[in-house]
Nucleic acid binder design. Sequence first.
RNA 1: GGCUCCGUCGUCUAGCGGUUUAGGACGCCGCCCUCUCAAGGCGGAGGUCGAGGGUUCGAAUCCCUUCGGAGCUACCA
Length: 536
Amino acid sequence: MTDIAKPVRVRFAPSPTGKLHIGGARTAIYNWAYARATGGTFVLRIEDTDPERSTDENTQIILRALSWLGLDWDEGPEVGGEYGPYFQMQRMDTYAAALERLKERDAAYPCFCTKEELDAKRAKAEKEEGGYAGYDRTCRCLSHEEAQARIDAGEPHVWRIKVPLDRGAIEFDDAVYGHVSFPSDVMDDMILVRTDGSPTYNFAVVCDDANMAITHVIRGDDHLSNTPRQILIYEALGYETPTFGHLSMILGADGKKLSKRHGATNVEEYRDRGYLADALVNFLALLGWSLDGETTIISRDVLTSQFGLDRITKKDAIFDETKLNWMNGVYIREMDAPTWVEASKKWIADACVQGANVEDGVVVVPTPEQGADPLPPAITPEDEGYAEAFAAALADIEEDPSFYEKLYPLVIERLARLDDIPAKLAFLFWGPNVQLDEKSVSKVLLKEGARADEALRACRNELAREDLPWEAEALQEACRALCEPMEMKPKFMFQPLRVAICGNQVSPPLFESIELMEPEDVLARIDGVLETVFKA
RNA sequence: GGCUCCGUCGUCUAGCGGUUUAGGACGCCGCCCUCUCAAGGCGGAGGUCGAGGGUUCGAAUCCCUUCGGAGCUACCA
């Protein structure tokens, strides 16, 4: 059943009719991981035979997405290989040759039935006979002479496979589903070559997989029903069939097939929303496959050495973003400071730009009831001037990342996604201004009996001391020392300070944040709050 | 309609006839830690294994039926 001797050759064959979908990404990961785990070859082939929907742009997007995921292919676009070309449109001669081979073997025949005739027959059968059983083989009965004469006369025709009449049930052992059997009487003489001479999907796939010596066809479950058809084509061609392995579908949260309705469905969107490739690969690998049922964090090394077809589930899986968010956080926390800055620079730059544009002094921000974004951006990518400011900030980060590495301990344990960064760090760049979250003002600063103004004044005095080292621990000790004499719990001392400086009752560690800011800015913010909120 | 496949906590899964009072992870709840939020530690709730029949001393695990879901049924891929 399994060829131990034959080196594994697997392929991922997307059609560039769209971007790289989450489901496609998982298929690619499984093929890639299987190739790596077995020491085999991972082939990438672009199935661009649908001229209506295929675009070069989509091809580029798919290649870029695969590269971003870190799924390197051994043969395919950009890297070449001895079984090329790897674009179906460039393999037309091979399909023509395959058709010749079929003719020689008397395994295919021309069909002159028009699309209209077929549609009519199908409609009639569905209405009157309770179901269409497939093409009725009208043209299969034509003599060779008559068929040839009509071809010579220029009559339009397609080429159909001549399914052996005595072919029994079509059975195969799927690497995932196990033994599968299809009755042969439901297999009609499907079209292999269209009127315009182009190959149909099933024909092209078989030709390519055979010609590229693919040993294991690992693909989506939506092809399970195509497999018996393709087996028939392999047999007609006289080629050995590969091992098939079908992957269950990935569904949206509502249990329906994943689509745009469910939000992000292509991998570039995940990259742009601050997900890490390692996390996405890990998560997707586990959507339908398990290492041992216990392990959830699986490194690439483990994946590419331990992955196997035997632990793939048959059950459809629902794509649950909350678990991906957790896993992404795990991977973010594994990064060291320089790596984090490098991976996060575009979001850090965004935080800088947003922060730098708060210039109105103390502002009380109206908070939506849900308390959504605590810090609405003062400037968005759509606004004028954003692009220039962003580019400048990015250049600054790249030129000297050392300052930005200091932001790392502030947020590294608080990020589920990299795009959470602007909301968490923009306040550091507000200069002397502070944008106050209304809810925080009412719950902390104006809370009954909180003595927030007292706390602010006391802390301000401490922070203004010339002899105080501007360093987190010293700052904290100075403010903490105020608690006892004032008979105030640290929480009541620090929370008002946090709101006054960070604008929100939730923020990164307070004194570590203050340390990174200019002393005069910090004092200015406190003064601003005292004046505005407490009308002092 | 026909053909094929699937069905274990809300979600991802382990389980392959007895070691299972069905294990782990996410999420949720509580406690601890604590300057907030996280992170971390500890604990908890949550599954009559889609349902109904068998087989067996014993079934989530084997058989049958049934219900639900998905895919295919194109000169799309």
